[in-house]
């Protein structure tokens, strides 16, 4: 199976994002009952983002040496636009989900005070928001890949 430089770049971005953020979120959400101070360390997020940028840069550089130049034409722009639309809807769903969760909590419908404390804490909401940001990026990469392979 032949892959163009852009497809290789997308696969790289997708795999690196899934692996690194997947591991990060697994650690975060499997420890959801911890106290807020234990749950969230913003420097972890910065470290993860820097790690992703470095890994992506190295792998893309490796592929670009053997492949075509990074020219962007009308097909690339169309694919980018379509996949950004899917990414946008994912982020919208995430934002609405978080909003509903907060409204649900504000209405006092949570039956368990402990759940209220954990699932509506600023720490948990921040992680949830980050999760939807990452998910929308994953949707962006994967739909781009889909359109490059299957046609647009």
């Amino acid at each position: 199976m032949n892959f163009s430089y852009k497809e290789k770049s997308l696969i790289t971005s997708l795999v690196v994002t899934l692996l690194i953020f997947g591991r990060y979120f697994f650690g975060v959400f499997s420890n959801v009952t911890a106290t807020p101070s234990e749950q969230f360390d913003f420097s972890d997020v910065i470290r993860v983002i820097i790690l992703i940028a470095i890994l992506e840069g190295i792998i893309k550089w490796f592929f670009s040496k053997k492949d075509e130049a990074d020219l962007v034409d009308e097909r690339d722009k169309l694919i980018d636009t379509k996949s950004y639309r899917n990414s946008y809807w994912t982020l919208c769903i995430g934002a609405w989900f978080i909003l509903m969760q907060l409204l649900f909590e504000a209405s006092g419908l949570w039956s368990n005070a402990y759940h209220t404390l954990v699932f509506t804490s600023p720490t948990f909401i921040a992680h949830l928001l980050l999760l939807f940001f990452v998910l929308s990026e994953v949707i962006h990469f994967s739909t781009q890949l889909f359109y490059y392979r299957k046609g647009v």
Binding site: S4, E68, L71, D73, R75, D76, Y148, V152
Partner: peptide, 10 residues
């Protein structure tokens, strides 16, 4: 034409 080879293939 000013496009990529991938676009011609597509």
């Amino acid at each position: 034409v000013g496009v990529t080879r991938q676009t011609i293939i597509a």
